[in-house]
């Protein structure tokens, strides 16, 4: 990609502010992700996580600032061009039309397809089958997407993101509504995807265990950032989440886990 200083960074959010219906929801947020890093975005409900993520995959345009992918401004790229560099798992559940799993995954090739009338090529189909196998969902290809369980759906959507061949993968609460097995499975798949990842997460222990870097968002502003062990300290958590957090060491894995109760 580009050879300047930002070239090594796959994703750079540079002083981005976002307005929705005249209200500023995100204030001058700056964050970066180096190639291959898994970066977590944590914060209370309504802190602006989803709004910020939507700017990265172009569902929203920031009021100020810029989102840079490999040094290039996302909102200056053609939509298809941007979609070849950044894929997303939005928090969106539409259940009107019964696409098959193969059709849903095939949509990931849309930004790569040449000629509007061209259907999926043989190479596209191979790509999709390989991606489904990679997330362990090859046997689901012929199923209706709406008939899948929550965990199966997320796996299929990860496969769709993979066939987009993005450099950056954006996930909005990918573990929502999943049982613990599937939460861990989805995060492992995301790690294995090998792309740079920016993900919003609610569960702070999951965030601590699966992210290289965390950013804490509160009322639309970044209030802390760094490695999870440094960021998730009781003082900050009391201030941002209004909870008392007690770090304990996991007796088996040795990882630091947080226990929560209400502030006294």
């Amino acid at each position: 990609m580009s050879t300047d200083g930002t070239g090594a960074l796959d994703l750079a959010v540079d002083r981005v502010s976002v307005d929705l219906a005249g209200v500023r929801l995100v204030h001058e947020v700056t964050l970066t992700a180096a190639a291959g890093q898994v970066v977590g975005l944590v914060g209370p409900n309504g802190s602006g996580k989803s709004t910020l993520l939507r700017c990265v995959y172009r569902a929203l345009r920031p009021a100020a600032g810029a989102v840079l992918l490999g040094g290039e401004e996302v909102h200056r790229l053609a939509p298809r061009e941007a979609a070849r560099r950044v894929a997303a798992l939005p928090q969106e559940h539409t259940a009107e039309f019964d696409f098959t799993v193969a059709e849903v995954v095939g949509m990931g090739r849309l930004p790569h397809r040449r000629g509007a009338l061209a259907g999926p090529s043989a190479a596209d189909e191979q790509h999709c089958a390989a991606a489904l196998d990679r997330v362990g969902a090859g046997h689901l290809a012929g199923r209706g997407f709406l008939s899948l369980s929550g965990g199966e759906k997320q796996r299929v959507l990860i496969a769709r993101a993979l066939v987009q061949e993005p450099r950056v993968l954006v996930l909005d609460e990918p573990t929502n509504h999943l049982d613990i097995t599937h939460q861990l499975e989805v995060l492992a798949l995301v790690r294995e995807a090998g792309t740079t990842v920016l993900t919003a997460l609610h569960d702070l222990n999951l965030a601590a265990g699966h992210c290289d870097l965390l950013y804490v968002l509160a009322e639309g502003r970044i209030v802390a950032s760094g490695p999870p062990a440094e960021v998730l300290e009781p003082g900050l958590l009391a201030e941002v989440f209004k909870v008392r957090a007690t770090p304990v060491r996991h007796p088996v894995t040795g990882a630091v886990q947080l226990l929560f109760d209400r502030l006294p």
């Binding site: 995959y57 997303a88 969106e92 539409t94 696409f99 059709e103 949509m107 849309l110 397809r113």
Partner: peptide, 24 residues
């Protein structure tokens, strides 16, 4: 419409999904 068929698929999945697939 035939030319826009792929974009219609994306739109049917939702506006956010469509945007992430390069469809405005």
């Amino acid at each position: 419409l035939a030319r826009a068929a792929g974009q219609l698929d994306a739109l049917a999945m939702g506006d956010e999904t469509a945007a992430s697939l390069g469809v405005d």
